Amino acid sequence: MDELRKFQFEFVENCCFRMDESLRMLKIALAKVSEDQVWLKPNSSLNSIGNLILHLCGNMTQYGIASLTETEDKRQRDLEFSTEGGLSKNELLNKIHVVIEEVKSTFSTISIERLLQQKQVQGFDFSGIGNMVHVVEHLSYHTGQIAFWVKQLQNESLGFYEGHDLNTKNED
Rank of each mutant, 00 (worst) to 15 (best):
C57L: 06
K104N: 05
L79N: 07
H55C: 10
H164S: 10
E113I: 14
E162R: 09
V136W: 04
M1R: 06
E156A: 02
V135N: 02
N47I: 14
L116W: 11
L40K: 14
E102A: 13
Q152E: 08
I49T: 03
Y141N: 12
D36M: 07
G144P: 05
E102D: 15
N14Q: 14
H142V: 00
N167T: 14
F126C: 03
E171F: 05
F160N: 08
M60F: 06
T106R: 05
E21Y: 02
T143A: 02
G58K: 07
E80I: 00
T168Y: 05
P42N: 03
R75N: 05
N131S: 10
D78N: 12
Y141H: 15
W39S: 06
Q118W: 13
K41E: 13
D36T: 11
N51F: 02
E137L: 13
N94I: 11
L93E: 04
V136Y: 02
L26D: 11
E21N: 11
E70Q: 11
G86Y: 08
C57H: 12
E101Q: 15
T168S: 12
K95M: 15
E70W: 03
L4I: 09
G144H: 10
N43V: 04
R114S: 12
N14G: 09
F160E: 01
L23G: 06
S140N: 13
L56K: 04
K89Q: 10
F7N: 07
V98W: 06
R75I: 00
Q8H: 13
V150S: 00
M1T: 14
F81N: 07
F148V: 13
D125A: 12
L26H: 06
F107K: 01
Q152R: 01
S34D: 07
V136C: 02
N131T: 03
V150F: 02
E171G: 06
I129L: 15
M132V: 14
I96G: 01
L56I: 08
V121I: 14
S157F: 01
E72H: 01
N14W: 07
E10D: 07
M25S: 07
N94K: 15
D125E: 15
H164G: 02
N167W: 07
E70C: 08
S108Y: 01
